[in-house]
Simulated scan of single mutants.
Amino acid sequence: MKAWLEPLFERQPGWRRIYVDIPGMGQSPAESWMKSSDDLLEVMLDFVETIVPDQSYTLAGMSYGSLLARGLLHHHRDRVNGILLIAPPLNQREGERNLPDIIVLERDEGLLAELSEEPRGSFETLAVWHNRENWEKFEREIWPGREQCDRQFLSGTFRERRYPLSTDIDHPERPFVIPTLILTGKQDAICGYQDSWQTLMGLFPRATFAVLDGTGHLLPMEQPKMFQALALDWLERVDKQ
């Protein structure tokens, strides 16, 4: 996230940034009692109360992180002053998602032959441009986290019907009237874009919603110019309110 977000603050200074290492997804260990998304959300709620107690704050999350961000928003409706959702899933199991077909826009067979099996598989799954420029960004910005994550925890927890939050965050009692940016990839075969459009636009009356062509699940990496422009506009909207 730092690779994509930090350039924004060179143009929009004055922000305190807190990057969260979610348990099981980096260097923060997953404890034995963490069995579901509800458990991880409780960790995040405790984290917020420890780091920014009784303060307003702004949220940015990508993929699963955006699901937890929406869980925080549900609990802290009156404290969150803006939210950025990147390639967000809805609060549903993977088999329930409406997804586009898998599309590869460029494929460098020579490059792929150079890669070892594990990073190659991850790269081919998440990216739609299988070329050297994209691989170098992937290797720098994505793979270190993929390599560190606790895969046994992630597969065991979220493949056994424990992925959705028990709170129905897709149907809150009333909309969230805060500056919002929802970014999706037209070729995102992991989280898609149609479900988000149909559900999230009604929940966020002040949302900008973009479906970016030429990118899959890693849209800040594959479409950096569009990401920077739209995210900077969102930050400015949060600052102005």
Rank of each mutant, 00 (worst) to 15 (best):
K2Q: 11
L5A: 14
P7D: 11
F9N: 04
Q12H: 09
W15T: 07
I18W: 10
G24W: 04
G24T: 01
M25E: 03
P29Q: 06
P29G: 07
P29T: 07
A30L: 05
E31T: 14
M34L: 15
S37N: 08
D38H: 03
D39F: 02
D39I: 02
D39W: 01
L40S: 00
L40K: 01
L41M: 12
M44I: 01
I51N: 04
Q55M: 14
S56H: 14
L59C: 07
G61P: 01
G65R: 03
G65M: 05
G65P: 05
L67D: 02
L68C: 09
R70V: 13
G71C: 02
L73F: 03
H75P: 00
H76M: 08
H76I: 00
R77G: 00
D78K: 10
V80K: 01
N81G: 13
I83M: 13
L84W: 08
I86F: 05
P89R: 05
N91M: 02
N91A: 08
Q92H: 09
E94Q: 13
E94N: 13
G95R: 13
G95E: 14
D101W: 06
I103G: 01
R107D: 12
G110N: 13
L111N: 11
L111Y: 15
S116F: 07
S116I: 01
E118Y: 09
R120D: 10
R120C: 13
G121E: 13
G121Q: 10
S122G: 09
E124C: 11
E124M: 15
W129K: 11
R132M: 07
E133T: 14
K137C: 10
E139P: 05
E141R: 11
I142Q: 14
I142A: 13
I142R: 01
W143V: 11
P144N: 12
F153K: 04
S155A: 12
G156Q: 14
G156P: 00
T157W: 03
F158A: 06
R161P: 00
P164Y: 06
L165A: 11
I169V: 14
P175W: 03
I178R: 08
P179H: 06
P179Y: 12
T180F: 08
L181G: 05
I182N: 00
L183I: 12
T184E: 12
A189H: 15
A189S: 15
Q194R: 13
Q194T: 13
W197C: 03
L200I: 06
G202N: 10
F204D: 00
P205S: 02
R206M: 14
F209S: 07
A210I: 02
L212T: 00
D213P: 05
D213M: 02
G214A: 07
G216F: 04
P220W: 04
P220Q: 06
Q223E: 13
Q223Y: 06
P224H: 08
K225C: 04
K225D: 15
L230Y: 09
A231I: 00
A231E: 05
A231H: 06
A231P: 08
L232Q: 14
L232H: 05
L232G: 11
K240P: 03
